[in-house]
Nucleic acid binder design. Structure first.
Lengths: 214, 214
DNA sequence: AAGAAAGGTGAGCGTTCACTCACTAAAAGG
DNA sequence: CCTTTTAGTGAGTGAACGCTCACCTTTCTT
């Protein structure tokens, strides 16, 4: 079984890797994460972060010297650890098994990646919001994601096309439809407070039919 | 032919309806719209709005007494005019014609509604961003949209199911897949600066297959 | 134990923000 | 014409913001 990755464990790995991060600094990162997700980066004040973290305001500025650096610090483990693992775990799960039907294939992928979305909901929310507004973060995310997808995902899709399990469309469009359909469910769940996984069965059927060979 | 609706014409209608709105107030609304879309509501200052509108800062506060009211003023015509027309035009286009095939049906709808998305791109961007962060705006939008969809869209979907042109899934899920697939294209276009309508053909095929009866 | 290094503090700094107000200019009404 | 109303101005205001720094406390090093 492939190990699951989420932002909490990634944070701990980063903390373990770069020496012992003091507990109050972890509290600052955790408080920033939750506040940015709740009310957005621009509307969150450093005073609020200090209050929720239970530290003085000066402590917020010990490791990261500006509020922008703090945002980068919150998103960094996600960009360097979580995102690559998201894609490579996906590839492993798909190629590492022989599926008896296309249904099994799509079902495994959707169930698995939607659990990932749930586990990293708060960070994904920050990224979506800030990407819509900050050009630098947008460019950075794209330049990381594109090669990641090309190396890990596209060969798998090519393989599935070859064995007649997938429609012969450009890989970027297939990825768009799969990722988009799953993210749509995340957005809907955010709006209505319903369970993210409640529609998994229909999402699987929809993708299975929509991406079947013509 | 059904009339197209976009935010510019809706603004003009609102201005005509509520007496003559002075030109400088129009400039304030237009400047707010573009700035909120560019850098988000929280990161836009009233001084910037005044500068882009070519007015003094006091003028910004003549009609709307707070920055929050200004946001509401920008979104109001969209909520009261554009959104209802978006849904009712959709219903008219689908029921007002007899289609020779499901392909024609989906193609008409997708092409038409994606043009709408293009025409109202900037406002949609503000709404998506602010809805993720502001509870009041989220609730307001949902409480407007849900009855709108139930009255206009759901009967059409039921009709299509009855004549065997649509899969027998809950209406809210079908709406989710259609709207989600189109909005995904908007997000992608925003990220990569590609033409929003470039993938129309594949989107039509994808939805046509995914929503076909089982 | 003593010194050095790192972590943590919070009052306070300069700046910028949303917003105000006394005032002028223009338009509307009689 | 004069009066009243509406539109517009921009310097100014208090509050809140991001951020600093001199100082204190804890932990490491030898």
């Amino acid at each position: 079984m492939v190990k699951e990755t989420n932002i909490q464990t990634a944070f701990q790995e980063v903390m373990a890797a770069s020496g012992n991060i003091p507990p109050k600094q972890k509290q600052v990162l955790a408080a920033s994460l939750s506040l940015f997700a709740e009310k957005g980066f621009a509307s969150t004040t450093t005073k609020e972060i200090a209050e929720r973290a239970g530290v003085a305001e000066g402590t917020v500025y010990r490791r990261y010297r500006t509020k922008d650096e703090l945002l980068a610090g919150v998103l960094a483990p996600f960009m360097t650890d979580v995102l690559p693992k998201l894609v490579s775990e996906f590839a492993e799960k798909v190629v590492g098994q022989t599926y008896s039907s296309r249904h099994d294939l799509v079902a495994t992928v959707v169930n698995d990646r939607m659990q990932f979305v749930v586990a990293n909901q708060s960070v994904l929310r920050i990224m979506v919001t800030e990407i819509l507004v900050r050009n630098d973060l947008r460019d950075q995310t794209i330049s990381r994601m594109v090669p990641l997808l090309k190396q890990n995902l596209y060969p798998v899709l090519d393989h599935l096309k070859a064995i007649g399990e997938l429609v012969d469309w450009p890989n970027d469009r297939i990825a768009q439809f799969m990722i988009g359909t799953m993210l749509t469910q995340l957005v809907r769940s955010t709006l209505t407070n319903e369970d993210v996984t409640s529609a998994a069965t229909l999402i699987i059927k929809f993708l299975e039919k929509g991406l079947a060979p013509e």
